[in-house]
Amino acid sequence: MSGNIHAPLTSGTATMDPPADQPQLRVASLGKTFSRNRKTVHALQDVSFDVPRGQFLSILGPSGCGKSTLLHIIGGFEQASSGSLLLDGRPVAGPGRDRGMMFQQATLFPWKTIESNVAWPFIVDGHKRGEARERAHELLATVGLSGFERSYPAELSGGMRQRAALARTLGLSPDILLMDEPFGALDAQTRELMQEELTRIWEHSGLTVIFITHDIDEAVFLGDRVLVMGARPGRIIADVDVELGRPRGTTTKKDPQMAEYHSHFWELIRQEAGPQADRNGGSDRS
């Protein structure tokens, strides 16, 4: 910001802006090994991909393939063992509000009301209590939770808790939304409603989303693009653009193309779980 003072002296501030063709997020040969009791687990190996600004990226993969680990590294909560992670061209140093994380379980504080939970980031940021509450109310309205401001998390259903968690994450004004199987614990109907709701909110926001799931239909319905990961070691086995029109809604789910994508991804995952998985299984104990 202070650079603006000298702006007239320099040829222009354009050099400060990221080039238009630069991806918002660049993941380059990322690796992560966990060591515990002399046993090493290759959670991630040579994972590379770019995410352009505004994309909805689904990451699909079987349990234990390193999806969460990847998201935790992007979030800055964990450190990669190798490779690099560039956010707008700069290496990621730690967690930040530019990347809003949504956990598999809605991590709401049970001792705070829904309103206070959503307002908490604003309070931490130094906003006045009344102002923070006002912002919380707006956010809760966006996710359809008006009228539940004074409820405690224990009084809400699983879906409503995830809505509240989404509202709180949106309150960070992130550039990227990191979502780790946020609907994994919900029943099928609630899950579909939440998917449609998320699509609606995302289409209005221009946010970049990295969405992890092990549900093929969810990955396809939500995503502009789907990365498929394989396990042991965790790596990317496919990178597919989803060519379904937008806006997406109930009709999209009946689209015959959905079924085609489903069988395509199912085939990929089936192959992965076949002989190849056995071959790589041995390298785990190296």
Binding site: G75, G94, P95, R97, G100, M101, T107, F109, W111, W120
Partner: peptide, 26 residues
Amino acid sequence: TKDQLWLARNVGAGWLRTLRDVTLPA
């Protein structure tokens, strides 16, 4: 939980704020 502490880091809460608003109530 780890999630609660990570959430606090994501929000940018310092250690004192985390102690007061997260650890002590829990």
